[in-house]
Write a protein that binds this DNA or RNA. Sequence first.
DNA 1: CTGAAAGCGCTTACAG
DNA 2: CTGAAAGCGCTTACAG
Lengths: 355, 355
Amino acid sequence: MKKDTSAAKGPRASTPRAGAARAVTVTDIADAIGVSRATVSLVLRGSPLVNVDTRARVEAELRRQRYVYNRGAANLRRRTSTSVALVINDLSNPFFAEFASGVDEALGAKGFVTLLGSTGESPARQQAVLTTLMEHTPAGLILSPAEGSDAAEVRQAVGYANVLLFNRELKGGDWDFLTLDNQQGAYLATRHLVEQGHRRIAFFGGHAASSSCHQRRTGYAQALEEAGLSVKPDWLIESAPNRLEAAARSGELFAGDVPTAAVCYNDTVALGLMLGLASRGVQPGRDFAVTGFDDISEAAVALPPLTTLTVNPRERGRQAAELLLQRLDDPTAAPRHTVAPVQLRIRDSSGPAVG
Amino acid sequence: MKKDTSAAKGPRASTPRAGAARAVTVTDIADAIGVSRATVSLVLRGSPLVNVDTRARVEAELRRQRYVYNRGAANLRRRTSTSVALVINDLSNPFFAEFASGVDEALGAKGFVTLLGSTGESPARQQAVLTTLMEHTPAGLILSPAEGSDAAEVRQAVGYANVLLFNRELKGGDWDFLTLDNQQGAYLATRHLVEQGHRRIAFFGGHAASSSCHQRRTGYAQALEEAGLSVKPDWLIESAPNRLEAAARSGELFAGDVPTAAVCYNDTVALGLMLGLASRGVQPGRDFAVTGFDDISEAAVALPPLTTLTVNPRERGRQAAELLLQRLDDPTAAPRHTVAPVQLRIRDSSGPAVG
DNA sequence: CTGAAAGCGCTTACAG
DNA sequence: CTGAAAGCGCTTACAG
């Protein structure tokens, strides 16, 4: 795809409201009370240099004329930025919505504004969104990459901007990265099932090629090994992370050596599996134990309620914002990987082994 | 609260990445190939005035130097804006997250960037967020107001900006407004229950003082009247829109003249009611019919699945963006109220009347 | 303590 | 078709 350098085609711009008065500027304030624009600017920026009396007069005039600061102009002159771009692969997923909300909260507390972009898991849209957002000169970028993102393409769009990746790593990018502790999470879930007396435990769902699935399987294998159990290839079952396919593939658990429990890739898969189990007369939580990952809101109200791993996406959002701000303070530091803790939340779906 | 006119205290700004090269500008391009900045600008803006050959040379140089357009500077000079502020009362609510995602999608398609602000239902935070966002000179604002917002305060923060309100009206504001068809939705749900043979139908949940609850009760009353049934005060039961309180108040349905069905204020309330019913041995969908409002994702997987009203929040987001853009094109037009359609989605919770 | 001047990166009449 | 000049709203040395 040829890079589009034309600024004319895409964006529509909007002129100021027709009827509305022209915005009031520092010049208006300065002229009104007979000081220079410099003085007004110093007052705006809270400089101690200006006479307390002059300051009072300026402040009164600012209020009188309902002055609103043009941060864009100030940023241009100062060569600074007070915005951060936040690009999310799927904002309609409650997990990422919570995350975004945490990012915005933490950023706002520091006086930054969030430039939002959502990509709907499309690398092409992501490319377009990144390009547009970069034209607004954000101080940095928090990116939860769309599935199938290419590091080189992203680099092309973001240049040398300060970037923090969330959730999906893009190797070769050399960017900061915040991820959940996938391995530990799956380890905790598996160990819990072992403690419930299960010995025949499958890992169900996810694509083995994805890094998060790989990490979760590693944690699963680790817990089995610690318990003196071995990983059976028959018990590694792949499935796209949606309910329908998970339900459809649940039969594969009963093809050979039948397990008594399954650690699922995530909650959606676990919910689908529970559906599949129920449809063949196997009652989840009683006849077969199931665990998930994410603690989506449906997990608590499923029947039975789903044992899963809580990741606190809002807190992850705040953390992502913090990490990016640290990066802004020290742009030359080596890229950092941060692993966020996860917590096992035990509910009824992981009942004890029977029989 | 005194208005803070100081620009210094709050925001931290960020200087460009230390190690990184200074951003390349039109001047760099112009100098490199010996044309004026004006010519480069004309190329960038796609002007037909420039010689095809000159254009080619400029474009090649833009690519070579990896030029990125500074839209902020251009907007300053042209006195235009390519951003829209989106302020959401509760981004962690999937309904609003979907809405935001629809807004961003539609805005992005028109070349606008979304300035996000989330207020967590706090009018005070909303005030701060609005003030900050306005300093970034958005072309307009889409606001889903926090509960308890005051029109005068909002006006104070947004001045004469182009505003579209979503979901909650702020009377006295004189702004465009997009709302769901609450009345029609409740009407459809109630009529459906009547068609199922119910004659004793309660309206359960919500605060009577809220406009959305009032509108839904009106639709409910309308359907009853059409069916020759009357509204009984005993059957108007208030409850905060959360599951816990709804479950707790479900007993009130059985205090006097016991109904056989309830139109609920929303899905959350309906889910809580179903819990309350089950706990007293009344099976929802069989012994007692229930309907909700919103079609949150849990509605489809509840037991029994919940009959409700689909509002398609993503489509509402797109619509909100469209409406705001229309407003930008004609800032002096009279304020418009737009009512978005809702659709009845029949599931098992609204079973036929028995006995 | 205050003002005049230059400049951030861009655009737009206006000449030529 | 191209360039010189002015200017968007702000800030920052530099004089005084």
